[in-house]
């Protein structure tokens, strides 16, 4: 029986492959068949995530291919750059950031995908209420309330600790009673964008906790 690997495991595997490739390419070495296989595996792992992100943002099929091509070309460039060692330590963040930059560049020229500032009138999820109605949503407090026992609470905080940095910061501050608008001010972001991050974090927490808690 095959077990589906998590994004985290896939990223770690890609990171190891990237470190092997960079060790050779940044010192003027050649791409051996083994390293080419590593590179192919990294790109193969990335492509479905990239297509997924581009699809969510409503890009058409041709545009998704453009984003994938730009991301692969950028990866090829950065693999040879001696100064880009962060991709060996934080490959998931590197790929996400690269794709987000490509999307923003498209946005700047075409204005056809998600605006950098999310509208407060935009629905949460596919058919949720407008964002302004959930800006100070107490879901995270309810999650803590639902995890009363020490064991359950520890599990909740373990899951929070594994969240991406920004989501963790936003959720942790909200649990400490800091208002969304104050977090927005602290980070210098719009309150709507902070709400967007918060909602994504809550969704991720729910998914992880449900998966872990189901028998």
């Amino acid at each position: 029986m095959t077990q589906q690997r998590s994004w985290y495991e896939v990223v770690l595997e890609c990171q190891e492959r990237v470190a092997r490739i960079r060790a050779v390419l940044t010192t003027g070495g050649a791409l051996t068949p083994d390293l080419q296989a590593d590179l192919d595996a990294v790109i193969l792992a990335m492509r479905n995530w990239i297509f997924g992100r581009a699809r969510i943002l409503g890009l058409d099929e041709d545009a998704r291919s453009d984003v994938l091509l730009a991301a692969i070309n950028q990866l090829h460039k950065d693999l040879r750059s001696p100064g880009f060692s962060s991709m060996e330590r934080r490959f998931g963040a590197y790929i996400s950031t690269t794709v987000n930059r490509i999307l923003q560049e498209r946005n700047n020229t075409q204005q056809n995908i998600l605006s950098p500032t999310v509208s407060l009138d935009a629905p949460v999820g596919d058919d949720g209420p407008p964002l302004h109605e959930v800006v100070e949503d107490p879901t995270s407090e309810r999650l803590v309330e639902a995890h009363r026992s020490e064991d359950e609470r520890r599990r909740l905080y373990e899951v929070i600790a594994a969240l991406p940095t920004t989501e963790r910061i936003v959720i942790t501050h909200r649990l400490e009673g800091v208002r969304g608008t104050d977090i927005a001010q602290m980070l210098g972001m719009s309150p709507a964008n902070v709400s967007h991050i918060y909602n994504r974090a809550v969704k991720r927490l729910r998914q992880t906790l449900t998966t872990r808690e189901s028998p």
């Binding site: 992100r53 099929e61 291919s65 994938l68 996400s96 950031t97 998600l114 500032t117 991406p164 920004t166």
Partner: peptide, 30 residues
Amino acid sequence: AFLEFNLTLGELDEPAILSPAEEAAASRVM
């Protein structure tokens, strides 16, 4: 503008299951 955009979009979501047409397009690009 990019930093805010990047934080708002966040990390990549779950991988998509590609349609045969998307598979073909991705292979061509690769």
